[in-house]
Design a protein around this nucleic acid. Structure first.
Lengths: 356, 356
DNA sequence: CTGTTAGCGCATTCAA
DNA sequence: TTGAATGCGCTAACAG
């Protein structure tokens, strides 16, 4: 069994209070005794037992990261952002992935507890009334990343504008038949951002006097494979779209696969726009709405850490910028194309960016 | 402040021992009092404080997952495997990402402690002598995933054979100028598997009577961008390779980007083989060595959970199978190609697999 | 400046 | 079958 603070105290010939003081700099200690203690600590290779200190201090030094869509690359990039700042702090990360409704319930019932974690970082999920009640009752700091709640600090995007802007870009290119594929518009996992992106999509169409066709909107669980299926369905329609706007890059990659399956050339036969700008969007040369995922993770923990330190500040809301990154999956539709000319004909390899 | 076991006991009109017994089924309790306790638990929405529990039981119900190369998709797929089994257990996951030597030291110095975690799951890292000493001294269960140590349970691949097989395939296609790009052959982060893959590469060349050219081996930190750089260097050689075998898919994707930069056609101008078969290898139609990453995570935790339950079993070693998955980034080299014929000319979309 | 003690919340042993 | 007492390892308040 590992050494305890008592072993150290005995070996150093001091009391346990002194050892604790040395370890935590909690009160001045005579330099000589200090050295004796340090020597004993080194000798015994002593590291304080976290359970003991947690119990005593009423602080866990642990942050729960609650993640839905744990299968997607975008969540991983956020998590990487989180880990990069956590590595330099003295907090631990406890990871909770939720994929199903029962899991969601179990996690929200047991995790947001004082004595269990010091704070909650919640990705892409809006808390329900019950969730919020528990969070407030336990008085536990919580930050939403890609989520929204008036009473909780959160990091969000202007999804309506970003989506509208992206679809507007397609319209400007000359597209009139633009489809939208997305996650389910209303389920327990939606953070509402899905709905917002859909709204932006509609707004752009309506502003251009284009009809919103219900058959051009497909919904399904987030995965590349589902993106492929939904795109296949759309492209097999009697009057298929010439452009597809996807709720996420994950789905957009599926669209690209579907185009390949059907031997359609992208962008000439089909334009595709994604959302997120995951690392692989660059590889796939996907035109997409960039949100800085890594950064959202970084800002999220930092905000949470602040909130833990300073619990009584009013909830901060942080809006992250988005950018339409134009790469090589979008161009003018075939019937509008002037022969021999293509909007995306350059091969500079440089991303062209349009500020939102 | 949340309710404690004392609050429950008082409300139910019983002793705390009884409450504990009900909660843990640790001794028979009269059905009537049992119901009273349960009612009080529900009323107060009581959940035991884990720190108290841990301290008392000397068990943390927490597993540390130590991950290097946390930036890569392959590690994420492993982690997903881990989370899928953890969700059904009553263990928590504590995540430690290590990217630098100091981080590595700090993590291995503080994390493998009884009272801190119940077990260690280590990804793609071989423990040093010091690491092992601490692990044994603390008597803490540890499992290596994509790692090797004679005294520790581990999950590994036959990397030598898998790499040899992959390079052999390139040779069979007619390639003679085959390069290898990899992680640094010897740094503290290498799990030795890198060296093994290099060995397989050499063996295949030597068996075919091909010269091993030092300038055809490049080393660099794992990232797509580095893969691109290394490939660029290789392809700008006076006598460039006609095929590149990459230590990982991450690097291989960088090679594909480099080819695009140079306007080389893959596979006609350059064949590329990766290693791992991450999800995006499918999207990129990359020929690669498949190791089932998700599965390795699953097997890893399961093995660890077993070891925690049953600490005195002798260390299990599990070899996972690999498969060369042939997609569309490999073909016969240009000078050998019979005009109009291409080995990979079919477009069935089905992966052709070769068992190792 | 430092040793001693109380108590954090729980499981468990010892009595009853 | 159950209540009370003990201790897990630590921090912090208290007393010197």
């Amino acid at each position: 069994m590992p050494a305890t603070i008592h072993d150290v105290a005995k070996l150093a010939g001091v009391g346990i209070g002194t050892v604790s003081s040395v370890l935590n700099n909690s009160r001045p200690v005579n330099e000589t005794t200090r050295q004796k203690v340090l020597a004993a600590v080194a000798e015994l290779d002593f590291v304080p037992n976290p359970s003991g200190r947690r119990l005593s201090m009423g602080k866990t030094h642990t942050i729960a990261v609650i993640i839905t869509y744990f299968t997607t690359a975008s969540q991983f990039e956020r998590l990487r952002g989180v880990m990069s700042v956590i590595a330099e702090s003295d907090y631990d990360i406890s990871l909770f992935a939720i994929e199903t409704i029962p899991q969601r319930q179990r996690v929200f019932q047991t995790v947001p507890r004082r004595g269990r974690v010091d704070g909650l970082l919640i990705f892409s999920l809006n808390p329900t009334k019950d969730d919020l009640r528990r969070i407030r009752q336990e008085n536990i700091p919580a930050v939403l990343v890609e989520g929204y709640h008036p009473e909780l600090p959160h990091i969000f995007l202007d999804d309506v504008a970003a989506a509208r802007n992206a679809v507007q870009y397609l319209i400007d290119l000359g597209h009139q038949k633009i489809a939208y594929i997305s996650d389910y518009l209303d389920d327990l996992f939606s953070s509402g951002f899905n709905r917002n992106r859909y709204m932006g999509y509609r707004q752009a169409l309506e502003a251009a006097g284009l009809r919103v066709r219900p058959e051009y909107h497909r919904q399904g669980w987030q995965s590349r494979e589902n993106g492929r299926q939904m795109a296949l369905d759309l492209l097999n329609l009697p009057d298929p779209p010439t452009a597809i706007f996807a709720f996420s890059d994950e789905l957009a990659l599926g669209v690209l696969e579907a185009a390949r399956d059907l031997e359609l050339k992208v962008p000439d036969d089909l334009s595709v726009v994604g959302y997120d700008d995951i690392e692989l969007a660059h590889f796939a040369q996907l035109t997409t709405v960039r949100q800085n995922l890594f950064e959202s993770g970084v800002q999220g923990v930092e905000l949470l850490l602040d909130t833990i330190e300073n619990p009584h500040a009013s909830p901060t809301q942080l809006q992250l910028p988005t950018k339409l990154v134009i790469r090589k999956t979008t161009t003018v539709p075939k019937d509008k194309a002037v022969s021999g000319q293509s909007v995306n004909s350059d091969h500079s390899g440089l991303d062209k960016k349009t500020s939102l």
